[in-house]
């Protein structure tokens, strides 16, 4: 169980990025966090991952407080952030250096299969397409066998075809690993297609505006009609969120 308890984050510049954020995430659940720019979505993931300390409140995994990067939590960034001097194989095994070579090889082969990049082991990042590089980044996170996988708009820079393909990969990985997934996105379709629960955030300071549970089985087709009422609810909540960003009175929306 991942628990976020009254989380708040104020940066040294005085910007209040998060305030009073509470959320309980069950094991194996996929939660999508959605909201306009600057509403604290990325800060939320950085605090959960331990990259940023919370100013107030706590992140807990299985009751243990997370104050620094934790072995059970891994974060996939918006950009692949592969180390350009390492091959695909070396990038993937980067986080499992403590294991013996045989185990490293076994795990790397396993995740390469999961992200369907067999045969790319010796390539350098500069020889990969954007989608392939992001799949390597996913594999690098998966190889550590995290219980919680955080994804910060991981597909936002990719074209629609690659994005759809990677979303299917993510669901395939989720079925195989049963990992808890928290994905930040600004794409309503993506949130509705992937998540059990969608958390809509509002800005200034970043806090939860609405929580929408989507009780349809996964995988889902983005175009299926059953999703439409959920998308509508998410869209309405997002409009309210954007009204906060614009300073518009909530009642006018």
């Amino acid at each position: 169980m991942l628990s976020l308890l009254s989380l708040a984050k104020t940066y040294p510049s005085g910007v209040e990025a998060l305030s009073n954020f509470d959320l309980e995430i069950r094991p194996g659940e996929i939660v999508a966090v959605i909201g306009g720019s600057g509403c604290g979505k990325s800060t939320l993931l950085r605090v959960i991952s331990g990259l940023e300390p919370a100013t107030l409140g706590q992140v807990r995994i299985h009751g243990e407080e997370v104050t620094a990067p934790h072995p059970l939590i891994n974060l996939i960034f918006q950009e692949p952030r592969l180390l350009p001097w390492l091959t695909v194989e070396q990038n993937i095994s980067f986080g499992i250096r403590h294991l013996d070579a045989r185990e490293q090889g076994r795990r790397v082969r396993g995740v390469l299969q999961q992200v369907q990049l067999q045969g790319y082991e010796t390539r350098l990042p500069k020889e990969l397409s954007g989608g392939q590089a992001q799949r390597v980044a996913i594999a690098r996170a998966l190889v550590t066998q995290p219980e919680v996988l955080l994804l910060d708009e991981p597909f936002s820079a990719l074209d629609a075809m690659t994005r759809g393909s990677l979303q299917r990969h993510l669901l395939h990985i989720w079925r195989e690993t049963a990992a808890t997934i928290v994905i930040v996105t600004h794409d309503i379709e993506e949130a509705a297609a992937l998540a059990h629960r969608v958390v809509v955030m509002r800005p200034s300071p970043g806090t939860m505006l609405e929580e929408i549970t989507i009780d349809l089985p996964l995988p889902r087709n983005e175009l299926e009609a059953d999703l439409d009422p959920f998308k509508k609810r998410i869209r309405t909540a997002l409009h309210r969120s954007l009204a906060y960003a614009d300073g518009t009175d909530l009642m006018l929306v």
Binding site: S49, L51, A68, P69, P71, N74, L75, F77, E79, R81, L83, F94, G95, T144
Partner: peptide, 11 residues
């Protein structure tokens, strides 16, 4: 900073 954060994530 971005690649340093990769190192931090992997502790």
């Amino acid at each position: 900073r971005k690649i340093v954060e990769v190192g931090r994530i992997f502790r």
